[in-house]
Write a protein that binds this DNA or RNA. Structure first.
Length: 109
DNA sequence: GCAATGACTGGTA
DNA sequence: TTACCAGCCATTG
Protein backbone atom coordinates (compact mmCIF):
# COMPACT_ATOMS: atom_id res chain seq x y z
CA UNK A 1 0.00 0.00 0.00
CA UNK A 2 1.11 3.51 -0.20
CA UNK A 3 3.15 2.73 -3.23
CA UNK A 4 4.95 5.63 -4.80
CA UNK A 5 2.59 8.08 -6.47
CA UNK A 6 4.62 10.08 -9.00
CA UNK A 7 2.98 12.75 -11.10
CA UNK A 8 3.81 10.86 -14.25
CA UNK A 9 0.81 8.57 -13.88
CA UNK A 10 3.04 5.61 -14.54
CA UNK A 11 0.43 3.17 -15.69
CA UNK A 12 2.23 1.68 -18.67
CA UNK A 13 5.71 2.52 -17.51
CA UNK A 14 8.13 -0.18 -16.33
CA UNK A 15 8.99 -0.13 -12.66
CA UNK A 16 12.51 1.11 -13.22
CA UNK A 17 11.32 3.83 -15.61
CA UNK A 18 8.91 5.07 -12.98
CA UNK A 19 11.67 5.37 -10.38
CA UNK A 20 14.03 7.13 -12.79
CA UNK A 21 11.44 9.63 -13.99
CA UNK A 22 10.48 10.39 -10.40
CA UNK A 23 14.09 11.17 -9.45
CA UNK A 24 14.66 13.38 -12.49
CA UNK A 25 11.47 15.27 -11.77
CA UNK A 26 12.86 15.98 -8.31
CA UNK A 27 15.98 17.72 -9.63
CA UNK A 28 15.72 21.46 -8.78
CA UNK A 29 16.36 24.16 -11.40
CA UNK A 30 19.97 25.15 -11.93
CA UNK A 31 21.14 21.67 -10.93
CA UNK A 32 22.00 18.61 -12.99
CA UNK A 33 22.51 14.90 -12.40
CA UNK A 34 24.61 12.32 -14.19
CA UNK A 35 23.12 9.06 -15.45
CA UNK A 36 25.19 7.14 -12.93
CA UNK A 37 24.06 9.43 -10.13
CA UNK A 38 20.41 8.84 -10.95
CA UNK A 39 20.99 5.10 -10.94
CA UNK A 40 22.60 5.45 -7.53
CA UNK A 41 19.71 7.49 -6.13
CA UNK A 42 17.27 4.97 -7.52
CA UNK A 43 19.38 2.32 -5.83
CA UNK A 44 19.22 -0.15 -8.72
CA UNK A 45 20.35 -0.67 -12.27
CA UNK A 46 23.05 1.42 -13.90
CA UNK A 47 23.66 4.40 -16.15
CA UNK A 48 22.74 2.42 -19.27
CA UNK A 49 19.31 1.67 -17.90
CA UNK A 50 18.73 5.33 -17.07
CA UNK A 51 19.70 6.27 -20.61
CA UNK A 52 17.37 3.65 -22.01
CA UNK A 53 14.48 5.08 -20.01
CA UNK A 54 15.32 8.60 -21.17
CA UNK A 55 15.29 7.55 -24.81
CA UNK A 56 11.75 6.23 -24.42
CA UNK A 57 10.23 8.49 -21.77
CA UNK A 58 12.68 11.41 -21.59
CA UNK A 59 10.03 13.70 -23.03
CA UNK A 60 8.05 13.33 -19.80
CA UNK A 61 10.79 14.87 -17.63
CA UNK A 62 13.33 17.76 -17.71
CA UNK A 63 15.87 15.62 -19.62
CA UNK A 64 18.24 18.61 -19.99
CA UNK A 65 19.00 18.26 -16.25
CA UNK A 66 20.43 14.83 -17.02
CA UNK A 67 23.97 14.87 -18.39
CA UNK A 68 27.02 12.62 -18.80
CA UNK A 69 29.50 12.13 -15.97
CA UNK A 70 31.90 14.59 -17.65
CA UNK A 71 29.28 17.35 -17.89
CA UNK A 72 28.39 16.90 -21.56
CA UNK A 73 24.68 17.06 -22.42
CA UNK A 74 22.94 14.39 -24.53
CA UNK A 75 24.59 14.47 -27.95
CA UNK A 76 21.21 14.44 -29.66
CA UNK A 77 19.93 17.56 -27.93
CA UNK A 78 22.99 19.53 -26.88
CA UNK A 79 21.82 22.78 -28.52
CA UNK A 80 18.45 22.76 -26.79
CA UNK A 81 20.04 21.75 -23.50
CA UNK A 82 22.53 24.64 -23.68
CA UNK A 83 19.63 27.08 -23.97
CA UNK A 84 17.94 25.50 -20.96
CA UNK A 85 21.11 25.74 -18.84
CA UNK A 86 21.33 29.45 -19.64
CA UNK A 87 17.71 29.94 -18.59
CA UNK A 88 18.21 27.97 -15.37
CA UNK A 89 21.56 29.62 -14.62
CA UNK A 90 23.28 26.25 -14.48
CA UNK A 91 27.04 26.57 -13.69
CA UNK A 92 28.83 26.14 -17.00
CA UNK A 93 32.50 25.81 -17.91
CA UNK A 94 34.37 28.68 -19.62
CA UNK A 95 33.95 26.93 -22.96
CA UNK A 96 30.17 27.07 -22.58
CA UNK A 97 29.67 23.61 -24.06
CA UNK A 98 29.95 21.62 -20.86
CA UNK A 99 28.55 21.86 -17.36
CA UNK A 100 30.61 22.48 -14.24
CA UNK A 101 29.68 19.22 -12.55
CA UNK A 102 31.64 20.34 -9.50
CA UNK A 103 28.96 22.94 -8.69
CA UNK A 104 25.99 21.89 -10.77
CA UNK A 105 25.86 18.28 -9.58
CA UNK A 106 22.85 17.86 -7.31
CA UNK A 107 23.52 15.85 -4.16
CA UNK A 108 19.90 14.82 -3.69
CA UNK A 109 19.08 17.28 -0.94
C1' DG B 1 13.12 -18.35 -21.77
C1' DC B 2 17.19 -16.57 -24.60
C1' DA B 3 19.86 -13.09 -27.03
C1' DA B 4 20.61 -8.43 -28.45
C1' DT B 5 20.20 -3.59 -27.48
C1' DG B 6 21.36 0.93 -25.39
C1' DA B 7 20.46 9.32 -24.26
C1' DC B 8 26.78 5.34 -19.93
C1' DT B 9 31.21 4.95 -17.00
C1' DG B 10 35.98 4.68 -15.84
C1' DG B 11 40.49 3.44 -16.92
C1' DT B 12 44.38 3.29 -20.05
C1' DA B 13 47.23 4.95 -24.24
C1' DT C 1 43.25 16.95 -24.62
C1' DT C 2 40.93 12.99 -27.46
C1' DA C 3 40.28 7.92 -28.63
C1' DC C 4 39.43 3.03 -27.67
C1' DC C 5 38.08 -1.09 -24.62
C1' DA C 6 35.44 -3.82 -21.48
C1' DG C 7 31.76 -3.98 -17.96
C1' DC C 8 27.26 -2.95 -16.54
C1' DC C 9 21.91 -4.35 -16.05
C1' DA C 10 16.80 -3.58 -17.13
C1' DT C 11 14.00 -3.58 -21.25
C1' DT C 12 12.57 -5.33 -25.67
C1' DG C 13 11.84 -8.70 -29.57
Amino acid sequence: MADVAPEHAAADLPRYAELVLDVIDTIPPGRVLAYGDIAELVGEGGPRQVGAVMSRYGSLVPWWRVVHADGSPPVCHDAQAAAAYRAERTPMRPDGTRIDMRRARWDGR
